[in-house]
Design a protein around this nucleic acid. Sequence first.
DNA 1: TTTTAATTTAATTGC
DNA 2: GCAATTAAATTAAT
Lengths: 196, 196
Amino acid sequence: MAGRSLCSADPASHNLQNKSSLGENKNTSCSFSIESILGLEQKKDGTQPAKPHRPWVDKWNDLGEDCNPCLRIPAISYAIPLFHASNYPDAEERVLKCENYFAVNERLSYKRELSWYRGRRPRTAFTRNQIELLENVFRVNSYPGIDVREELAQKLDLDEDRIQIWFQNRRAKMKRSHRESQFLVVKNAFPQNMIK
Amino acid sequence: MAGRSLCSADPASHNLQNKSSLGENKNTSCSFSIESILGLEQKKDGTQPAKPHRPWVDKWNDLGEDCNPCLRIPAISYAIPLFHASNYPDAEERVLKCENYFAVNERLSYKRELSWYRGRRPRTAFTRNQIELLENVFRVNSYPGIDVREELAQKLDLDEDRIQIWFQNRRAKMKRSHRESQFLVVKNAFPQNMIK
DNA sequence: TTTTAATTTAATTGC
DNA sequence: GCAATTAAATTAAT
């Protein structure tokens, strides 16, 4: 519950309240600076390392593809639509896989297609040992803080990000299974009400 | 996609391999400390008492659900391994094992679950039209004051709170994407340094 | 088909 | 107000 408040304490008092037309920008006295809008003004202390958020897309660039992430396609592309594949002369394999893909999946939503280009982190396949340690820690602490996550990351040779996501998904799974078992409890308590 | 903290350059030594049994907690060579695993070292704060004003929980109570959070939440079962759960009533067993783990962890997760399960507002699913207007306004003014927010709330049949949170999250998203694009700019300016 | 890694975003907390 | 983080709901790879 973020402490609300109609607070006048806005850092820059960016108020357009008096406009009754919400979507129009007829106001020229807008107090936005570009820096403000871009959030540039706020790191004077130089603490911002500008972490690459999708470092795995780097290898796509090595293929000489367009650097615009939106136009990029996965490096090992099992998923290039035919009409695009034809634009990638060097990729026989891709075309083959692509044809395969389309043979199986005739219809693809535009959205899904877009996601290929947007770039998704390749799915991590955890080893048995990695899972084992993660599960053991999870039993004891399902909300490891950054310190524990970093420690785990180092021990398991994984990015801390992967650890964080793993715990998030693990908690969701735990919750799901708990819900299901609770459902069973209720169902068994009142079978006549719950059948079907 | 929580913006993670500084990406740690990985320390050259990620040697877990020599640990033969990752999962045994009797293994004393494990370097996790209890505090470390439980993440205790990072929260020293005396936390606030729970916030009031959560109108949406009222209807849960109206549904006749038990108000006792213990019966509604998986708090306890969350953290306890099954093979321990069966022994759970046996206090001496717990003493023999890592009772501190569980004692503390129960308390921690109880508190978390208490606030989450009782108090978390059901996720709002905005409609496409709502998003569209919000985005249009955002383009013009990413810091709408209370007047605009109220106006939006009325037009969109949403609480003003939802509007406020939406803009907050939207600003965070914009900032993130800006950071990423800045990273790409820098990276592309010095490709030779970045290609691995 | 099922499980689960990854993504997006509404909500929460603390500062 | 923001950063960081969480849960919820998806998407998609296996």
